[in-house]
Design a protein around this nucleic acid. Structure first.
Length: 547
RNA sequence: GGCCUGUUGGUGAAGUGGUCUAACACAUUGCCCUCUCAAGGCAACAUUCAUGGGUUCAAAUCCCAUACAGGCUACCA
């Protein structure tokens, strides 16, 4: 029996020869320096911040070099795959404006000439290459049962040896074809293992784009390449897919660093060019003394829905992630307010080597800056969409008089240094509820402590002094003058010397007006509050306050 | 057990042998500005870079050891 016949016997019903695929997926016609990379998740659930981080990084590098960014679904572990997992990935990633040039576009459809992009649909391709290795005597069937494997592992760990199938443990490595055929005819189950040409004493160097050179022992373990279900293991699929899809840069989590020797060996054994590697350190969370990866289950702020519910835009999340990706992004962004994230040139060498702790406070600070830069119309549109989903009552209130709402949102916004108090759409109501009489009437909060004066003084101010046509300066001068005539002073020194002679400072009069209007001692400039609320509403609130 | 990686303030982090009594940002505190708050401006906050040795005229930066933390060590990705 020839090697070719043997390969056919071990992996029957494979339609094409490996060379067919080499022709089918020609080299990509791209400019020098263009990065071809991918986001390659397992469809095991909703992507979270860490997944967005990874895809954002890969996307950015491809985009800025006019390369190709594609999505590949790694579903060779059937047990973990969930229903509609692909759609969940697509639906989560897309709103971040992270776009794939190729890959699945729905649960069932895909675009691009290098597909299929779902590993479970590529079984034939992997087997074609596995047959190539068998023909070349670089792979072999292995007949260990699960129990035998467990015994070997137990023995090795007991003897403090490296765990795996190598040297004397590779019992089936040199089995003759005839013996193997006999076993198979006896119905013995088998998998395909690589006949590793490596030597553990030798070193291989991973030239990692982020972490620098890392020296690792060469792989000498006969790794499984085709599992008993006929599907490939991660390493084998990785080598074949990234070769056939012409990936130039493998950008992935750094938990893969130590399996690099296996991957490199596979590329070489298959006669493929080894791509460049960039291993990303994870986003972490500190839990007491220990550090762990950000987790969907343990950290609510890791899920994307957390931000949707609060009304924190995807753009803000991306801005925060960008500050992690390259430390100098933040400074660049504050100095280039007219530019967008995509204009920044990210570099691998500026990425963090160790893990980065997730900092929600920092993210919120970025969010405040983000909201402060929006135009009132933009904010309104976002708020409209947000409240339609999460606060229908507030949604109808802000839409009752859109012009009015726009005016309110514009208070101290359309200026050189806008206010920075809104960190999320959820907070808008908290900052502006008192500007809507219907919400004010319903509000049951207590008034905050404030120095009071006679009710009549306040009423007279509104009725006789206040003029809605005044600009801010005139308005304040009048307030000052009126207050001073009615028991207040603008002279700090004088007030300190004779505090009993006055009701308070002019600022106390303003504070009183503020509390009457908003119940709290914090709000934007009261000039605008009075102007938009109008005299009548104010008189109403004065009555309420002195009741 | 073996192999790999990391360890700079309350936090993220810059730093690759002298300009480091350590940039920048978030947080905190104080002052100024302001009707108040927010913003903004100014200032304070590590004499020290996990610990211990070594190399050097000189070390956060190079070397060694130790400790701690993380990753990998599957027919999981």
């Amino acid at each position: 029996m020839t090697n070719k016949e043997y390969a056919n016997f071990l992996l029957p019903n494979v339609e094409h020869d490996w060379s067919y695929y080499e022709e089918k997926y020609p080299k990509r016609d791209l400019k020098e320096g263009a990065i071809v990379s991918r986001y390659a998740p397992s469809p095991t659930g909703l992507p979270h911040i860490g997944n967005i981080y990874q895809s954002f990084i890969s996307y950015s590098f491809c985009k800025q070099t006019n390369g190709i960014f594609f999505l590949r679904i790694e579903d060779t572990d059937g047990k973990r795959t969930i229903e509609n997992g692909i759609q969940a990935i697509l639906d989560t990633i897309k709103p971040f404006n992270i776009e794939f040039n190729e890959g699945p576009i729905s649960q069932t459809e895909a675009k691009g000439n290098y597909g299929p992009y779902i590993q479970s649909e590529r079984k034939d391709i992997y087997q074609a290459y596995a047959k190539k290795l068998i023909e070349e005597d670089k792979a072999y069937p292995c007949f260990y049962t699960q129990e035998e494997m467990d015994q070997i592992r137990e023995y090795q760990s007991h003897k403090k040896q490296r765990i795996g199938i190598y040297k004397k443990y590779a019992k089936y490595r040199d089995l003759s074809k005839e013996e193997a055929i006999e076993k198979i005819n006896n119905n013995e189950k088998y998998i395909i293992r690589l006949k590793s040409p490596g030597d553990f004493e030798n070193k291989v160097i991973l030239h990692d784009l982020i972490k620098g050179d890392i020296e690792l022992p060469e792989n000498d373990i006969d790794e499984v390449i085709i599992k008993s279900d006929g599907l490939p293991t991660y390493a084998f699929a990785h080598a074949i897919d990234d070769h056939l899809m012409h990936t130039t840069h493998v950008i992935r989590g750094d938990e893969w660093v130590s399996s690099y020797p296996v991957h490199e060996q596979l590329f070489k054994v298959l006669g493929f060019q080894v791509p460049k590697y960039a291993h990303i350190a994870p986003i972490t969370v500190k839990e007491g003394e220990t550090v762990r990866k950000l987790s969907k289950r343990k950290d609510p702020e890791a899920t994307i829905s957390y931000y949707y519910e609060k009304g924190i835009p995807n753009e803000v999340i991306k801005l925060y992630l960008a500050t992690i990706v390259n430390f100098d992004f933040e400074e660049w962004y504050t100095n280039n307010t007219d530019k967008s994230i995509n204009d920044f040139n990210f570099e691998f060498s500026k990425m963090p080597i160790g893990g980065t702790a997730f900092d929600l406070e920092k993210l919120m600070s970025i969010s405040r800056t983000y909201f402060s830069r929006l135009k009132n119309t933009e904010l309104f549109d976002m708020l409209d969409k947000y409240t339609l989903e999460y606060d229908k009552e507030f949604n109808s209130i802000i839409n009752e008089d859109k012009e009015y709402s726009l005016n309110i949102l514009n208070i101290e916004r359309d200026v050189e240094r806008p206010r920075k108090d809104i960190a999320s759409l959820e907070e808008v109501k908290k900052y502006f509820w008192y500007m809507y009489p219907s919400l004010f009437d319903k509000n049951t909060e207590e008034y905050m402590e404030v120095k009071k004066c006679d009710k009549q003084i306040v009423l007279d101010y509104i009725n006789n002094i206040y003029d809605e046509k005044d600009d801010q300066e005139t308005w304040f001068n009048k307030v000052k003058e009126y207050a001073c005539l009615n028991g207040y002073t603008s002279d700090k020194k004088e007030y300190k010397e004779n505090p009993d002679k006055f009701i308070g400072m002019v600022s106390d009069f303003c504070a009183l007006l503020r509390v009457i209007i908003v119940k709290k001692n914090q709000s934007p400039n009261i000039y605008y509050l009075i102007k938009y609320l109008g005299k009548n509403e104010l008189l109403k609130r004065i009555e309420l306050f002195y009741k």
